[in-house]
Design a protein around this nucleic acid. Structure first.
Lengths: 182, 182
DNA sequence: GTCGCTGCAAAGTCTTTGCAGAGAG
DNA sequence: CTCTCTGCAAAGACTTTGCAGCGAC
């Protein structure tokens, strides 16, 4: 029921691209389809995951050194894509937002507070419950976000390792202490 | 099961204050109990709700014009209180965080995307489900946050009013148009 | 050609920090 | 008295905006 792995995008890149072009054409003042906008979309598509504007900007710069793309354009395009519902964002404390392609099925997030890793899951019962609660309060639900913060299995291991080392160095210290006493 | 209203704080101000003083004393380098820290705490206590540092700063300035309290101190104290678990924060997109006294029972949030109003609710079934999901992924759960975004009943009314006005002014326009044609 | 788009840099916004003097313990 | 706290202002981090030239349509 809960899928542990990153989902594959549900549609092909071609379809997504068509969708995007359509959207641009249909805007009130028609918008233009530019190299920068395509690259940002394709980068989001090929790199499944969650990125800050800065991270995305770095990937794009690295993979497309010819076309100079400014960080401002990344911000502007992400904002455009978010309003269009093509990407969704998830926000952290003061440290800004991470974006991901939103053509995947709705899902919620598990976030590791040590390494920042994000896992996705989906639970029908919780979804239903949320809709019911919104209704109960007379809210017209637009969106919802469920984030579970914790320490991922990998970081838990690292923590345990560290503690082991601490204990060992304490042992060594106390042994040395005893040596001194003699 | 879901409580629609703001909860009353669960403890008296005196108890809360004692808790806070204790905490300060017990810190590794003992911290000091200052007028500014007390005012920030008491303001949070007496104004039940969710505030940005800026909002809290404005309230404090207004209610305590004598004691000059800087915004930096508000940030520093909120951070201190959050680390101590006395207040909790809820974060929005890029627009920062809102803080509330955390001595109330755990609860989740319904947020109006028009007016920014925050309502609280609590649902045992969702709580349990979250714990189960974290466990399933091997996460050591530290915290979780469930936010439902939507339009509150009041703002829905306002929207409807506006639409009505729009339709009426369109009618007037088209009447004037017809007049011109004659 | 027309207008929207882009990169750049400058300006905003929100938050944190450095510092010298004030004040709690 | 000793150190932490505070206000102030300056610095930071992140995001948005103004503008002149570029490029899609």
């Amino acid at each position: 029921m809960n899928q542990p792995e990153q989902h594959e995008p549900l549609i092909s890149y071609e379809t997504l691209l068509e969708q995007f072009k359509d959207l641009l054409k249909r805007s009130k003042p028609p918008l233009k389809f530019t190299k920068q906008r395509e690259i940002i979309l394709s980068t989001l598509y090929s790199h499944s995951g969650h990125y800050t504007p800065e991270e995305l900007y770095q990937i794009i710069k690295e993979e497309n050194p010819d076309l100079k793309t400014g960080i401002a354009t990344v911000y502007r395009t992400l904002s455009l894509l978010e309003n269009a519902g093509i990407v969704t964002s998830i926000s952290f404390g003061t440290q800004g937002k991470k974006y991901e392609l939103g053509v995947k099925a709705h899902h919620d997030h598990l976030i590791c507070t040590k390494c920042g890793k994000i896992l996705e899951f989906f639970d029908v019962a919780i979804e239903r419950k949320q809709a019911r609660i919104a209704k109960e309060f007379g809210f017209k639900m637009e969106d919802h976000s469920l984030k579970i913060f914790g320490i991922c299995p990998e970081c838990q291991k690292i923590e345990k390792e560290r503690e082991k080392h601490k204990i060992e160095s304490k042992k060594i210290e106390s042994l040395q202490q005893k040596d001194k006493e003699h």
